[in-house]
Design a protein around this nucleic acid. Structure first.
Length: 482
RNA sequence: CGGGGUGUGGCGCAGUCCGGUAGCGCGCCUGCUUUGGGAGCAGGAGGUCCCGGGUUCGAAUCCCGGCGCCCCGACCA
């Protein structure tokens, strides 16, 4: 790599460590444009795996992909009061085109509700047109003050689903179905445990009736919102006049939902699993699940191990395992080991003359443990089992870490001390007052991440507000967040 | 925009206090020898020292004015 060979540790400087993991794994780089990043092939490959898995899930639940324009007439943004208040300060605006000043400035989309619902108004006439279930994969731009690779960049990639329904109940069902789908993706693909729940009014999407989110806890015990699903009610339908005729012949506004996850998930993946040797990528999302490193001394050996390596690669690929043979010359095996570790490849197979003679390969796991020789007989099955085991082990480890950093029912003073120190998730009673919520944020930097869904709540509902001691109206989860 | 820091080959830095014409490590290129945990030797390429102005015989270094980037805050997926 660029400088000295030892990495900054998480312990020493988590933020520097995060940047170094990204640089060493060649996931992304800073661009000439402030706040924007270049997603390099290794990083984009992870995003592509994420896209594939999510897209399959969207399609399996009846959604179709479409594409809407990057530019939105500025006036569109203003049609929904809360929405414009929320997004106007962070938009990029195009005022000139073709050398002339535009009659109406164009906003570079920070999100696409407005232009999509303007179109829905044209497309939806009858209850027979509902539900309309559309997703788009796109880039959006938000002029953030401070940016960080993957976590918050001026331009980012995401998917945004936008649906229209005939009733509030249907819209709510869709909103929650997607929340569950995001949770499933986070846990089963990213091996990242999440809390699900509702956002408070101060944290909800600008223009939504209700916002739900999945929240994860990073290794530095700061929370990260990993995905959101909004029930928009009829707010946008009213603003864009999206109406339909009911079976009874009356006219009604549709009920909308919108939901999204972004390239932030790549940052979440990094901060959930990686270690002081570099990226650790869950096998299901890894560009390469297995890398084969041949080892040789003589030309004879070289030919033999390359043949063996190629055979193994073909056999594994045939079994659907993403496998790469690192046949580069002029690099010692150890150098390759370090490089592939930094890039997070889950499994490494070393093949040298001794292994060829023994009909085996040496298996090393990115997550540690002893190297061990394994037989070439039945190799794909064995490797698939290793992949499945590692995928599960990563989720288990991440959940254990999160749970260890979660406390319930502590006092105000303990809360203050905890937010100043260890961090993590804190469950406690909440009085429901926005003023109280704001005061907590001001004094401790902690925010309510979610009002958790029933399965995450404490067995005994808290009786009083953790902060002000007024009667509690809901249990809340606080954390310092990214 | 407020506070702090920093701009020197691709990357990380030294040199700046005390002015004398740019150096180290890593990386890169070529060749030979190497290859079971970051190879060795030899040769080589690569720099408007952030920009502009000033002082001086002479500026990476001193002075003035800009700009960029990073960290901490306010905003956020």
């Amino acid at each position: 790599m660029a400088d000295s060979k030892a990495m900054v540790t998480r312990e020493a400087d988590f933020s520097a460590w995060y940047n170094e993991v990204i640089q060493r794994a060649e996931l992304a780089d800073y661009s000439p444009v402030r706040g924007c990043m270049v997603i390099r092939p290794n990083g984009y490959a992870i995003w592509e795996q994420m896209q594939r898995a999510l897209d399959d899930m969207f399609k399996a639940t009846g959604h179709q992909n479409a594409y809407f324009p990057l530019f939105i007439p500025q006036s569109f943004l203003a049609r929904e009061a809360e929405h414009v208040e929320g997004f106007a300060p962070e938009t990029a605006v195009v005022t000139h085109g073709g050398g002339k000043e535009l009659e109406e400035p164009l906003v570079v989309r920070p999100t696409s509700e407005t232009i999509i619902y303007a179109m829905y108004a044209k497309w939806i006439q009858s209850y027979r047109d509902l539900p309309l279930l559309i997703n788009q994969w796109a880039n959006v731009v938000r002029w953030e003050m401070r940016t960080r690779l993957f976590l918050r960049t001026t331009e980012f990639l995401w998917q945004e689903g936008h649906t229209a329904h005939a009733s509030e109940a249907e819209a709510e069902e869709e909103t929650l179905m997607i929340l569950g789908l995001y949770r499933k993706f986070a846990e089963e693909w990213m091996a990242m445990p999440v809390l699900t729940g509702r956002k408070t009014d101060s944290e909800k999407f600008a223009g939504a009736l209700r916002t739900y989110a999945i929240e994860a806890l990073m290794q530095d015990n700061r929370a990260l919102q990993a995905g959101t699903s909004h029930n928009l009610g009829q707010n946008f339908a009213r603003a864009f006049d999206v109406t339909y005729q009911t079976a009874e012949g009356t006219l009604d506004h549709v009920w909308n939902t919108s939901w999204g996850v972004s390239t932030r998930l790549v940052g979440a993946l990094i901060m959930t699993h990686s270690d002081d040797s570099g990226l650790v990528c869950p096998p299901r999302l890894a560009q390469w699940q297995v890398v084969i490193v041949p080892i040789w001394k003589t030309d004879e050996d070289r030919a033999a191990v390359h043949q063996a390596g190629t055979d193994v690669m073909n056999e594994l690929r045939h079994a659907g395992i993403r496998t790469h043979l690192d046949a580069r010359e002029g690099l010692k095996p150890g150098a390759k080991y370090f490089e592939w570790e930094a890039r997070g490849v889950p499994l490494r197979l070393e093949i040298g003359p001794r292994d060829v003679a023994a009909g085996s390969v040496m298996l090393a796991r990115r997550t540690g443990g002893k190297k061990e020789p394994i037989s070439l007989v039945g190799l794909p099955k064995r490797i698939q089992a290793e992949i499945d085991t590692m995928q599960q082990a990563l989720l288990d480890a991440a959940r254990e870490r999160r749970d260890a950093a979660t406390v319930r029912g502590i006092s105000k003073d303990e809360f203050i001390a905890r937010m100043a120190g260890a961090g993590g998730f804190v469950f406690g009673g909440f009085c429901g007052s926005a003023a109280c919520e704001a005061e907590i944020k001001e004094q401790t930097k902690a925010t309510i991440r979610v009002l958790p869904d029933p399965e995450f709540r404490s067995p005994e509902p808290p009786a009083r507000c953790m902060w002000c001691d007024a009667p509690s109206v809901a249990e809340a989860v606080w954390a310092k967040a990214y």
